[in-house]
Every structure is written in structure tokens, then in C-alpha cells.
Nucleic acid binder design. Structure first.
Lengths: 190, 190
DNA sequence: CTAAATTGATAACAAATGTTATCGCTTTAG
DNA sequence: CTAAAGCGATAACATTTGTTATCAATTTAG
């Protein structure tokens, strides 16, 4: 886990060791719910291998809002940060191995880390990046057709297209699975 | 301008005075472009009175992405923070009076402010709030029908519905102006 | 004050998208 | 290994949504 972070960040070794001490490794089969819609997120996950999605209920149908692959940090971020009931259910969609930590252990350490200017700036940039990602996502709905959204995904996140069942992709794009199938057929012809 | 901030934040008087010294007041008529799509944002605005929107071009049509009313801080946030070309055009939609500051003057002051824990936490919370807002917006497109998105707006931002022309609202919701008119008619009947 | 522009509603039609059901083909569980 | 579940394609049909054009009412610019 931390070999990866090390390549990407300026976190020093001592910080890393402190963080690592709070994480434990766990494995789950596919379709395991790690956080249910309505619960408050008390844990954070680092995906070592496998894949998850967050989804929510829309008139009895599951709508997928986001995917997470290995080497990413996952939490129901708004629930984790604000201690509000999660809007989403977090569920594995492949057999998945993660590093888990409890929020109560991590929070003091994070506050300490943010005292230091370099880390603080990294942290702020990371949140901003998240903001821009969501902005782009919102934008894609008013700016692009479903076909364009699919093509963007093919270009920008080809791993998702390869690994993830098509009906999940469809709801992520905001269309029905039948319609996505039609779009693919049309694209094949042209 | 700063009377307002004062009520809402923990900024001390000395900080406020330093910030205020960088702002100047300006007024524009309706339909004034303050930042064009493709330019890098070098200014930040505090709206004293009036109303703006940010929009972008979609196949020759203007699509409205966001509105800003008085007492809010406005910039093409991703352009301002990352110094990248703005995705949006910022334009007034009413006669508008703003406080303006230049990014080059504000940045050093902001860095200094963020040294202090209380301000830093405020700042981080503010960015997170922005993230959650965009998350909700993305979510609304996969989770809700256009009619539900309109009703949410009526409930949560009634000022927008009252003040802003319907065709702007329509593109903000992600539908055509004709369709919004139809939705309103249907709602009247029920 | 007056002409021009903007706004919101509406109709008629076209295109996009959803729903339901069916059918092979994989994959998974036991 | 075998039965069950999951998956992707497809067809038929219903519904939603977009497009274009028109009109009356209102607002704006000069």
C-alpha cells in the first residue's frame, strides 16, 4: 500500500509509519456491502486489489454513482467528513482486498499533518481536484449527449469499460442499459 | 461587503482590513462579460448587488452552468486556482455591482491566512462544501427526472426561479426551454 | 414615448430514451 | 459437473424530450 503513496507524495517516512500503524488488511468477496446508505461512515479504505462502486436507490432501482479501482482511497466522503448519514451504499463488485482504518484513529493524525504547510497544500489541492472532477461530471450532463459521455469514458477510463458490467456503466452515465447497448451498436456501424 | 462576511466568519478585524484594501468597487450593466471562456481568471468578484451566470458553448447554444446572486464570491474557480483556461464565460444577467480584487494581490494574503489553524479549517470546510454541492448536482442527473430537478430548485433556490429568465433555468436543469414550459403546465394541473 | 428585443406559452412533428420481455451465452455457487 | 444467476443483445412499443415556428405580453434601449 504505502509503496504506492510514496511514489506520489511528499509524505515523509515517519508520517507514513504512523499512518500505516492504523491500517489493517481485509478481504471481501464480490457484492459485499462495506457501508449502507443511511449509515455514518466510520472507516476509510485503501484498495489494494479489486473494485467497488457506490450506488443509491431510485424508485427501487440501483443507480451507480461512482467506481473505485485499486490504489485509491475510498470513503463516502461527505459522510466521513461531515458525520452525516451516507447518501450511498459502498459495495464491492469484485473480490477485493483493502487496507482499512477507523476514522477516530485517523482524524487526530490528519489534523497534525495539516499543521505542516507542504502537506496542507497537498491536501487542499487534492480536495480541489475532487471538486473539479465533480464539476466536470455535472457539466457532462448539461453539455454532452449520452453517446458523448460514453465515448469520454471509453477514452478517459478504458479500464472501467473493460472490467465493469455494462449495466453498471449505463447507470453511471445516466441512461438505461438498453440504451447503452443501442449506442454501442450504432458506434460499431460508424 | 465586509459587514456581511463579518457576520458569518471568524476573520479578525485586521485580516479584514488587509483583504478589503485589495478590493475596489465596480458596476456593470446587464449582459457584461467579466471573463470569457478560454481566458485565465485573474480576478475574483464579490457580488454586492445583482446577478451573474457562467455558461459555455454547446453546438452554438449557450448552456448555463451556474448562477450567482449577491453576497457571494465568484470566480471561474478551476481557472483561478489552477491557472488554466476557463471552461466558462462569466456574464452579468442584471445590472450588477461588485467588489473586485486581482489574484496576484490576493494570493500571498491567502497563503498567510491559511497558516492559522482556525482559518485553514474554515477554508477546507468551504472547499468541501463546494465539492458536496457539485456532487449533489451530478447526483441529481442520475437520480432525478427533469421535473424533480425543477421542483428541487423551486424548493431550495426559490430566489433563482423568481429572478432569472426561464430559458436560463431550463439549460441549468439540463432541458430545453420548451420542455420546462411543459413541465410547469403539467404541475399547475396537478 | 416608441420600436426592438426578450420572454413564456403553445402546437406539430421528429428524435431520443425508457420499459418490458425474450433469447443465447457466460459465469458462479454448491 | 450442473443448475442457477448474471450478462449483453435485440425487438416492440410507450413515453419523454428536443426542434422549429408562431404569437401575445412584457421589458428595454434610445
Amino acid at each position: 500500500m504505502f509503496e504506492y503513496i510514496d511514489r506520489e507524495s511528499v509524505l515523509t517516512k515517519s508520517f507514513l509509519e504512523e499512518y500505516q500503524s492504523h491500517f489493517r488488511i481485509e478481504s471481501y468477496p464480490s457484492k459485499t456491502v462495506l457501508l449502507a446508505q443511511g449509515q455514518v461512515a466510520e472507516k476509510i479504505f485503501w484498495i489494494e486489489s479489486g473494485c467497488m462502486r457506490i450506488w443509491l436507490n431510485k424508485d427501487g432501482q440501483e443507480v451507480t454513482f461512482q467506481f473505485f479501482l485499486e490504489n485509491s482511497l475510498v470513503a463516502s466522503i461527505e459522510s466521513f467528513w461531515q458525520s452525516t448519514p451516507s447518501l450511498f451504499t459502498l459495495e464491492t463488485i469484485e473480490p477485493t482486498t483493502v487496507w482499512v482504518a477507523d476514522k477516530k484513529d485517523l482524524k487526530p493524525l490528519l489534523d497534525k499533518t495539516l499543521q505542516e504547510e507542504a502537506y496542507r497544500n497537498l491536501f487542499i489541492d487534492a480536495i480541489f481536484q475532487r471538486t473539479f472532477d465533480y464539476m466536470q461530471r455535472s457539466l457532462s450532463f448539461v453539455q454532452s449527449t449520452p453517446e458523448q459521455r460514453y465515448l469520454n469514458l471509453v477514452e478517459q477510463r478504458p479500464e472501467l469499460i473493460k472490467r465493469i458490467a455494462q449495466h453498471y456503466i449505463a447507470s453511471y452515465i445516466g441512461i438505461s442499459k438498453v440504451h447503452l447497448s443501442r449506442i454501442k451498436k450504432k458506434l460499431l456501424k460508424s
